[in-house]
Simulated assay, not measured.
Amino acid sequence: MEQNFNLIYQTSFENNSFLELQKYCTNLISKEPNKLFNSMNFSSISENILLTIIQSDNLQISEIQIWDHVLKWGIAQNPDLPSDFTDYSQDDFNNLKNTLQRFIPFIKFHDLTSKEFLEKVFPYEKIFPEDFYKELLKDFLSLLDPNSKRSDKSKSNITKEIKRTVDSKIITHQHVELILKWIDRLEITDKLISLCEFRLLFRASRDRHSRDKFHQICNNQSHTVTIVKVKDSNEILGGYNPLEWESSESYGDLVATKDSFIFSFDCDKIENHILSRVKDEKKAIYNSQWYGPSFGIGDLEIWAHNGSSYCRRSKQSCYEKPIRKTENDFTIEECEVFKIVRN
């Protein structure tokens, strides 16, 4: 079993009839992680499973060993890399960086000794986000004893695991993590510090492409994220509203908050995103029975009074910057609204 532990563990996730096997393997990994890390097929483990494993607080293995295994896994995903990292080209480092970018925020590098950092992390400087690496280097250079570690006061906050799946036809868990960091005003390389869930409230393809249906389901719901897939494009648009949605009896009411923002993603590359925070706090959210979820004055309007949807800029714009390259109306392929539930 030990020689094929990786295969057995992955198989346990493929069918609900293997729940007992999955439970056994998960418990075994926490107590004896080397059964997985030393298995013959470790390099073929899926990215999501490995991410889940390294985030376990009960993993009985040192942080430098976790980094060693993650690095080994990343190198194995790029078989064309030279055997000696000193022969890596810039493209080689970029390929490894792309492979490991989701793992880096979950490695507790501050738990390493300065000697471990120098030998195991420093040679791979080019795979880290620049600002993140500079902070690490600065902290480790301040240590005089090569076997010492940073003080607990200076360590980063430890992430509490958020729900690892999202019920969406538009976004992935990676989008969720980034949006939650924006809500908490964290840097991309920071770790999330709260346990939460993206709970689906409204889906246009299920509930109907209708502002009336949106209000019926989402009114009186606060802390929501609206996600829109633009038809015939790679665009994903969205916005965060910490306030409750309402159907104003008048033509519409602008309501104030300093915490809302709008954003856009490229479907193919999550790193191609735009974040635009509210700048005119008194006009952050537009509540109207004649509009779907709307932000500012034309900054992002879904199912406006004439049925159109658009992002437009003017002197009245209430958010920092445009999230689209065009002001043309767009057609909605799918729209989802999620409620953020903090546990």
Rank of each mutant, 00 (worst) to 15 (best):
C267V: 12
F42E: 07
L71M: 05
L143H: 10
D92Y: 06
N95S: 14
P82F: 12
D139I: 11
R312Q: 02
S154E: 12
S17Y: 13
W290H: 06
T331F: 15
L28P: 08
R164P: 05
R313Y: 01
D329P: 11
E333F: 01
I49V: 14
I236C: 02
D280F: 08
P82V: 14
T257A: 01
R324T: 01
N58Q: 08
K23A: 15
G239Y: 02
S114A: 14
V228F: 06
S247T: 09
E246L: 12
H209Y: 14
I158N: 06
E187L: 13
S247K: 10
E187H: 15
C311L: 07
P123F: 07
S276G: 03
H110N: 09
I217Y: 06
W303P: 07
I66S: 01
C196H: 04
N287T: 08
P82E: 12
S288T: 12
I274Y: 00
I274C: 01
N98H: 11
N234F: 08
I64Y: 03
F103I: 03
S44N: 08
T257N: 03
S276V: 00
S17G: 10
N328P: 04
R164E: 07
E125L: 14
L200S: 03
Y319I: 00
S148R: 07
F122E: 09
F85R: 15
R324P: 01
I64T: 04
L19F: 14
T226D: 01
K120F: 09
Q77H: 15
L254I: 14
F263Q: 00
I29K: 04
L136A: 10
I297S: 14
K120W: 09
F109G: 04
I171L: 00
S154M: 10
E125M: 13
S46M: 01
L112S: 10
T159M: 10
K258C: 09
R150Q: 15
K31M: 11
L59E: 04
D131P: 08
N16A: 12
K231R: 15
S222N: 06
S168T: 03
F5W: 04
K138N: 05
K282S: 02
E197S: 03
V230I: 02
I171D: 03
F37L: 09
L96I: 02
I66H: 00
Q77I: 13
V230W: 01
S260P: 11
C196R: 06
N6Q: 14
V228Y: 04
I8Y: 07
